Simulated scan of single mutants.
Amino acid sequence: MKVDIATLPPVRIATMRKTGPYGPEIGRFWMAAFRPWLREQGLLGAATYGIGHDDPAVTPAQDCRYDAGVEVDADFTAPPGVFITLLPGGVNAVAAFSGQAWEVPGAWQWLLREWLPASGRSADFTRPCTEYYPRHWRAEADGSFACELRLPLA
Rank of each mutant, 00 (worst) to 15 (best):
R65I: 10
Y66W: 06
D67V: 12
D67A: 08
A68R: 04
A68N: 10
A68H: 04
G69I: 08
V70L: 07
E71S: 14
E71D: 09
E71M: 10
V72I: 15
D73E: 15
D73P: 09
D73Y: 03
A74I: 09
D75A: 12
D75T: 14
F76M: 10
T77P: 01
T77N: 03
T77L: 06
A78G: 02
A78C: 03
A78M: 00
A78R: 00
P80G: 00
P80D: 06
V82N: 02
V82W: 00
V82M: 12
F83W: 07
I84K: 03
I84V: 12
I84Q: 06
T85K: 15
T85L: 14
T85A: 15
L87R: 01
G89N: 01
G90Q: 04
V91W: 05
V91D: 10
V91P: 06
N92I: 03
N92P: 03
N92S: 07
N92K: 10
N92D: 06
A93M: 04
A93Q: 03
A93I: 06
A93L: 00
V94P: 02
A95N: 00
A95Y: 00
A95Q: 05
A96S: 12
F97D: 02
S98Y: 09
G99K: 08
G99M: 07
Q100W: 04
A101I: 10
A101G: 11
A101F: 11
W102V: 15
E103N: 11
E103M: 14
E103V: 12
V104H: 02
V104L: 09
P105D: 13
P105L: 15
P105H: 09
G106H: 07
G106D: 07
G106C: 06
G106A: 14
A107N: 04
A107Q: 04
W108P: 06
Q109E: 12
Q109Y: 07
W110M: 05
W110L: 04
L111D: 01
L111P: 00
L112I: 13
R113V: 11
E114I: 10
W115P: 02
W115I: 08
L116C: 08
L116Q: 05
L116I: 09
P117K: 13
P117C: 13
P117V: 13
A118Y: 00
A118E: 04
A118K: 04
A118N: 06
G120R: 05
S122Q: 11
S122M: 07
S122G: 08
S122V: 12
A123N: 08
A123L: 10
D124K: 12
D124F: 11
D124T: 12
F125D: 07
F125N: 08
F125Q: 03
T126C: 09
R127W: 04
R127A: 12
P128Y: 06
P128E: 13
C129V: 14
C129Q: 11
C129W: 00
T130F: 03
E131G: 08
Y132M: 06
Y132P: 05
Y132L: 15
Y133A: 12
Y133V: 09
P134Q: 00
R135D: 13
R135K: 14
W137G: 10
R138N: 15
R138S: 15
E140H: 13
E140M: 12
E140L: 15
E140S: 11
E140W: 03
A141M: 05
A141Q: 01
A141H: 01
